[in-house]
Amino acid sequence: MSDAQERPSTSLAERAAPLAERAAPLAERAAHVRDMARWVRRRALRMVFEARQGHPGGDLSATDVLATLYFDAMRYDPANPRLPTRDRFILSKGHATGALYSTLAKAGYFPEEQLSTYMQPLSALNGHPNRNKIPGVETNTGPLGHGLPVAVGIAIAGQIDAADYRVFVITGDGELQEGSNWEAAMTAGHRKLSNLTLIVDRNRLQQGASTEDTVALDPLDAKWRAFGWDVVEVDGHDIEALLPLLDGSISRDRPLCIIANTVKGKGVSYMENKASWHHGVPNAEQFEQAMKELEA
């Protein structure tokens, strides 16, 4: 970790303080998250470039939500990753490990240097996350449609214990074609799991084509409402809009689905909105261009 002052405060006591006591104004918090997101994007892309594999399109679309969660909204202690009172995060679109691992390293769960082992033989940093090898990972994902049911289980445990931790899960949008999500959606709506927030990374592209050309998801907001959820649609790259939705400042009586409209490959001009960059790998020239664009 090069500059300690850039690291987020991870004191649970501080994070647990009433939000009104958070000194920094929204713009300042957003600027901090944006700095972190820029770092995560660049690091994730370097991981993919060096490993010669990965899923850069989905890494880049989910980065701003991840950064908002880890560098402002969530309470956690990287030195004590299984503290019972922690907020939980599950990356259900488990292939976006470039973004996840970069975020976890920046958040202090493991040394940044370890990111260079991404997908190398015997590395803990598998293409999909393993909770028994990487601190901060809550459940092993990779096959789609697994994260939300597990998040629902955690949220039920929190409800039974009247605990104040919150549970966050990011799914891809194409991932919502998996039926297990809708089983979990019904349970969450029925049990009014107000401690649960789902963020749908709505970049409108799945592996091979647009979601709407493959099996249409729209009207997506109406689907979640019908399942008993609050639904908010937001620009998934607008940190100032994401912050109040994720920081717990709005109390709810049911689970929240944030449809985060995002751009697959966000920040790299030649990747943006191109399905082919779902698991494309840049060549040296493309990588150099991308790193320049991501400095901005």
Binding site: T139, H146, A155
Partner: peptide, 19 residues
């Protein structure tokens, strides 16, 4: 969880995560 076995097993894993 109703007639929803995939969700049932996932929820079980989540409950374990919650202690």
């Amino acid at each position: 969880v109703g007639i929803a076995e995939q969700n049932m097993v996932g929820v079980g894993a989540g409950l374990a995560n919650g202690g």
